[in-house]
Each structure stands twice: as structure tokens, then as C-alpha cells.
Nucleic acid binder design. Structure first.
Length: 386
DNA sequence: TCTGGGGTCCTAGGACCC
DNA sequence: TCTGGGGTCCTAGGACCC
């Protein structure tokens, strides 16, 4: 029987901010965007007022006017996250990253070296608190789903272990929404069947679930409801895509402005790809309209690239393909998929490629940015606007 | 002045190849 | 003048997660 730990930071963005501003501890605090923003993370004091992750900043301000709102600082989160993951790696080589602040660890083989799973869990919590000064919660269980739900039950700043014999009793009273992978659409379909708890789902014929949700999804859900979950913890591989998107301060129908923003997000995507030493072939342009409808188009290049010019050109080609007439655009996004290691990728220079073209200029700009920060170099088109 | 930005995975149809 | 079936790639859309 495997032993799986799920480690989840508590109110991660808020806690990282509190390291710099300890005087705010104990007060309602949330981290989120200023214009057209949402709450990314709320302190437990703010949650007492009903402030939650995902809600609009406007609503959070209405619910709790006295709360301190903090702008997000992704560089800081990444730095703390790296420190936390270094601790995970010192415990076991099998660490599966879920996000900056969350991971599965396979503890099946650590008993002999480090002791019982609960002791290892407490060791992780102590190391994270001592070295990175942020709290976390740990769930320990025989499967990933139960470990994840156990860490949720352990919050804040606790540890819950669910032994194999306790799985069904732990699972069945909880709401179907608590299952990882059951979102609003699936929950709605289950509610229509009169199913609200995981136990109710478990006692429904598998075929009924399959008719409502599809053969695969229905079958998997029934198994999860009985605690059957064969998914293993797999050490995280490289990223499969790189994207960037930006919401306009105001909806716009100005195609020049839209094209300029597409250049800005393309440049950020390409720069991150070069830093990560990956190239990619499929470029996707996503548009979100004022009414929140979202649509996308993609195209696959002949050769993989990490160049701003190539990605931008592909994105503009896709923009043209939409044949927009008086669009009300809220957000643009560019994503590159089909990633390959840049050193292993086939290199196919175009016949008319100048010897020192954009790739060299971009490498030079990357070097300056690495030394002097992201605002040191920018394209002329991007410095004029904004 | 509701509703961000980073992702993953699945499905499904059509093209194309053998 | 008969039309199978498997595999892979490309594209679009949707659900979901943090």
C-alpha cells in the first residue's frame, strides 16, 4: 500500500507578504489585482468576513473595507517556492509539483530512514516553517485524492493522516464538490440526479453515472467515490506549454492597440521560453470578448521557435483569421505548445535569414534584462504606448 | 465598478498515411 | 464501380485546478 503525502501552503501569497510586513499579522489581509482584479489569496482573518480567493477585488473591498490589499509579487512567491521544494526533495526524490505552493510526495520508501509517515509529515512542516517562515498543512493517505482531501481537512497549519481502513468513512460524508476534478459542470449534473454527497455517488450504479457524465468520467468518479485511485506520484517533468495573457484596463475595439498588446504578450512568452531553454511549434491566440465569451485559434509552425518575431507573426496571422469586425476585446493571450528542449530541437534557418537577425538581438536583450531588470530593454512599439 | 493569469487534460472531427 | 481499419497530426472547444 503506497503512502502519499500532499503538502499545501496555507494562504501562501498572504504569508509570503507577511514575512516582509509582520505588523499586518492578525489583521484581515488579501493579495490581488488592482484594476479589474480578483482576490488571489486571503488571510484567515479576511476569510472571516467572507473574502475568498477568486472573488473580484471590488467585492472583497465591499465585504471588508478595513482589509489591507496587497499587490502580488510573483518573484517573491517563486523564490519561497523554490526553497520549499528544495526541502521536499531532501525528503524523497518523488515530488510531483501541482503548483507553486502545492505538491504530492511519495513517502512509501521513507519509513526506514525517517520514521513513520506522520513523523515525516511533521518534519516537513517544521523544516518549511523554520527555513522559509511560512505555514503549511499536510495530508497523508494511501491515494492521491485522499491525501489531497486530508491536507484540506488539516488546514490551517495542521496534519491529518487517513489510514487505509478509514478511507470510506472519511470520504462518504463529504460533498461531491470536494472531489478533485469535480467542478461546477460535473457537480451540477450530479445534483440533477439528486446526488450531493460522495457516499450517495458511491451507492449509485456505475452505469447511471456513465450515462450522465460519459463512460470514462462516470466510471472514474464511481471509483474515486469508493477511494479507488491508482494514480501514482510521478516526479514532475518539464512544462508542456508557456503562455501569457493580459486583460485591458478597458475593453477595446482598436485593432492597432490589440496588435500591440499581442506583441507585448508574445515578447514575454518568447523571453520565458528562451530562459527555460525550450522551443515550441504550436502557437495559440486566445481572445476574450467583453461579454466573457472566449475563443481561440492555433496554428503549427514548420519548425519550432523561441523567437519573439516568429511567435508574434503567428499570433497576428491568427488575429487576422478571426476576421473581427468592431470586436469588444477584454483580454488577449498567447500560448506556445509542443515544447522541446532547445538544445535537442532541429534548427532550420530560413533561406533568407540574415546572419545577425532578430535571434541575436533577442539574446542580447535577454542578457541586459537578466542584469538590469525587465524594464531595461523594450521594443519601441511597446514603450510608446502605456 | 462583477468575473486574473498560470496551467493540464480530454474529446471529437477531419486530413492524411499505410 | 469498391470502400476497411489503425495510427498520428492538427484544430477547436470545454472542464477543471491553483
Amino acid at each position: 500500500m503506497p503512502v502519499i503525502a500532499h503538502v499545501d501552503m496555507d494562504a501562501f501569497y498572504v504569508e509570503v507578504a507577511l514575512r516582509e510586513r509582520p505588523e499586518l499579522r492578525g489583521r484581515p489581509v488579501w493579495v490581488g489585482g488592482a484594476t479589474r482584479g480578483v482576490v488571489l489569496s486571503a488571510s484567515y482573518e479576511a476569510r472571516a468576513y467572507g473574502v475568498e480567493g477568486g472573488m473580484s477585488s471590488t467585492r472583497a473591498r465591499r465585504l471588508c473595507p478595513d482589509a489591507v490589499a496587497i499587490r502580488p509579487d510573483y518573484d517573491a512567491y517563486e523564490a519561497v517556492s523554490e526553497g520549499v521544494f528544495a526541502i521536499f526533495s531532501s525528503i524523497t526524490p518523488t515530488v510531483e509539483k501541482v503548483s507553486l505552493d502545492e505538491a504530492f510526495l511519495d513517502l512509501t520508501g521513507t519509513r526506514r530512514l525517517l520514521g513513520e509517515p506522520a513523523e515525516v509529515g511533521e518534519l516537513i512542516r517544521a523544516l518549511v516553517a523554520d527555513e522559509q517562515h511560512v505555514p503549511c498543512s499536510v495530508g497523508i493517505a494511501p491515494t492521491k485524492l485522499i491525501a489531497k482531501m486530508a491536507s484540506n481537512a488539516a488546514k490551517p497549519n495542521g496534519l491529518v493522516q487517513v489510514h487505509p481502513g478509514e478511507v470510506v468513512a472519511f470520504l462518504h460524508p463529504q460533498a461531491v464538490e470536494k472531489i478533485w476534478g469535480v467542478g461546477p459542470a460535473t457537480a451540477g449534473a450530479l445534483h440533477k440526479l439528486g446526488l450531493h454527497t460522495i457516499g450517495a455517488v458511491a451507492h449509485t450504479p456505475k452505469s447511471t453515472l456513465q450515462r450522465a457524465l460519459g463512460a470514462r468520467a462516470g466510471g472514474e468518479l464511481w471509483e474515486l467515490a469508493w477511494g479507488i485511485d491508482g494514480r501514482r506520484v510521478t516526479a514532475t517533468a518539464g512544462e508542456r506549454s508557456v503562455g501569457n495573457q493580459e486583460t485591458f484596463d478597458r475593453d477595446t475595439d482598436d485593432l492597432d492597440h490589440i496588435a500591440t498588446e499581442i506583441l507585448r504578450v508574445s515578447a514575454r512568452v518568447a523571453s520565458r521560453m528562451r530562459r527555460a531553454r525550450v522551443v515550441g511549434r504550436t502557437v495559440t491566440l486566445t481572445l476574450r470578448f467583453a461579454d466573457f465569451r472566449t475563443t481561440q485559434k492555433s496554428l503549427t509552425l514548420r519548425a519550432p521557435t523561441d523567437g519573439t518575431a516568429a511567435i508574434h507573426a503567428a499570433a497576428l496571422q491568427l488575429l487576422t483569421a478571426f476576421r473581427l469586425e468592431r470586436p469588444r476585446i477584454r483580454r488577449v493571450g498567447v500560448r506556445v505548445e509542443g515544447l522541446l528542449d532547445a538544445d535537442l530541437a532541429p534548427r532550420q534557418p530560413a533561406l533568407d535569414e540574415p546572419e545577425h537577425g532578430w535571434p541575436d538581438a533577442e539574446r542580447a536583450a535577454d542578457a541586459v534584462i537578466a542584469r538590469f531588470g525587465p524594464h531595461a530593454v523594450s521594443r519601441a512599439t511597446l514603450t510608446r504606448q502605456r
